[in-house]
Design a protein around this nucleic acid. Structure first.
Lengths: 256, 256
DNA sequence: CGACATGTTGAAGCGGTTCAAGTAGGGTGG
DNA sequence: CCACCCTACTTGAACCGCTTCAACATGTCG
């Protein structure tokens, strides 16, 4: 190891070896030597400003991106120009894996806030992962995880009522943020109501109304983008939606 | 090559080297030698009867399965016991990749008809794909393809009206079956109306009604599970749904 | 041939959208 | 630093696409 070497903090922080996302991201489970090899392949750490693109739909696959900080939305565009968000991405997650199949991106990735990413040229990642079994396995795992996430969203979209979708979304964000060192019961959403609505297949108005209801019923405190979870259990039973008979008569959200 | 060798047809057919799905499935792009190595890893060719499981949700990941013939539905089960189908799988497609992330299956795979699969132990596939670059790449591609498919379905579920979903589903099946050597304009659906409805997030009744409408309007001929596409262009414009103003006043499906 | 699953068709009800109007932030330029 | 504007968000009311419920038809399989 090169512990005795003098390096600047900023530089230190930009290496996998010292990245706080180590156990969420691609390097998980790699030995020191392998970690360094991966680190050497990472082309550059770039900063992306809000509303700028990491990649656009149709562009050729060049690199896979690991998010260091910030967040992104990925969305497809359908023929009439409207967008469909297929996911929000947080630090430690990989972006661009949709493009491997056809060698070009099938969705666009836009920064929701100023963000930092690690760019990993895909061909180098591929050949390196042939030499490092754990890296290959981790890559498979992360792709598999994305399939799982997408399928969970499909379940929500196909058969859950609006409340369940939103409750589930909030819980999901809470858990993901918590894994990244944030408080589980209090956090900021980086995406707009419109983006949430789009992801969940609902109208913005419905999101707005439901957040108000959740607040009236003491499940959440909502201050613009800042969410505080007040009643985790009730939120969970809403998200589960075990065909619970559920009363809305009073205009209030009540779980039996 | 071993052309002059005498082998039984049944045996011949059960090897990758002579499989008609060669260019859809995992072996795509492999050289003869590598193909044989892959073939040697494939544990056994098993037959699965209708309604039997290839794997169940929660089971540990043992193998990935390549479909040789027949078809499957994969579905998740949510807390209240109802199922959510996340996809139908056809010959040449891989099943079980959802399980890599957590080492256990997150959905179940049930045969829609008597089917044959090739079982590939995942650990062997992983180590082999480290030695054969093209195999590794193909595996990445197939996983990426699944992500794409899931995201396309998410788009349908999140913002498309019922007609568009069904039209899109039928066109999708047509294309996929066509790639596998069937006629594009005439085919059998192996899944029930209920399964289609479940996948597309609709009620069975809606599927039934729409198929009737499509038939009345001369887009399709529908005889139980047998579908004949009569007006491909109209079906496509329904599937595209470019926010077309679309008249339903007469109870008939008409595209302007 | 009978029984049960699967599919079809009609009519009523509702969840969520759409339309409309108004409020509140947040950034910009004077 | 405040006035302004524009976008994001909220709230209300009418409407509608799809679901639900119900009844019936058709296949299929023991």
């Amino acid at each position: 190891m090169t512990d005795n070497q003098v390096i600047k903090l900023s530089e230190l922080k930009s290496h996998c070896q010292s990245c706080s996302l180590y156990d969420l991201c691609l390097p998980m489970g790699l030995k020191a030597g392998d970690l360094e090899r991966l680190d050497n392949v990472i082309k550059r750490r770039q900063s992306i400003n809000k509303n700028n693109f990491l990649f656009r739909i149709g562009e050729p696959l060049k690199s896979i991106y690991a998010i260091r900080s910030g967040s992104f939305k990925t969305y497809m565009t359908n023929p009439d120009g409207t967008e469909q968000i297929v996911g929000f991405s947080l630090p430690g997650e990989l972006l661009g894996m949709d493009a491997i199949s056809d060698d070009k991106h099938t969705c666009s990735a836009k920064a929701l806030e100023t963000s930092n990413v690690c760019e990993i040229p895909f061909d180098q990642l591929e050949s390196l992962s042939r030499e490092i079994p754990n890296l290959q396995h981790q890559l498979f795992r992360l792709m598999s995880k994305e399939i799982q996430q997408d399928q969970n969203l499909m379940l929500l979209l196909a058969q859950m009522p609006a409340e369940t979708r939103l409750a589930s979304f909030i819980l999901g964000m809470s858990e993901r943020l918590n894994k990244r060192g944030y408080a589980a019961n209090e956090f900021n959403l980086s995406m707009s109501r419109g983006d949430i609505a789009n992801l969940l297949g609902m109208a913005v108005e419905t999101i707005s109304r439901l957040l108000s209801h959740f607040q009236e019923d003491g499940l959440l405190r909502v201050e613009r983008k800042h969410i505080t979870i007040l009643d985790l259990d009730s939120l969970r039973s809403l998200a589960t939606h075990c065909s619970s008979s559920y009363s809305k008569s009073s205009g209030k959200t009540q779980v039996r």
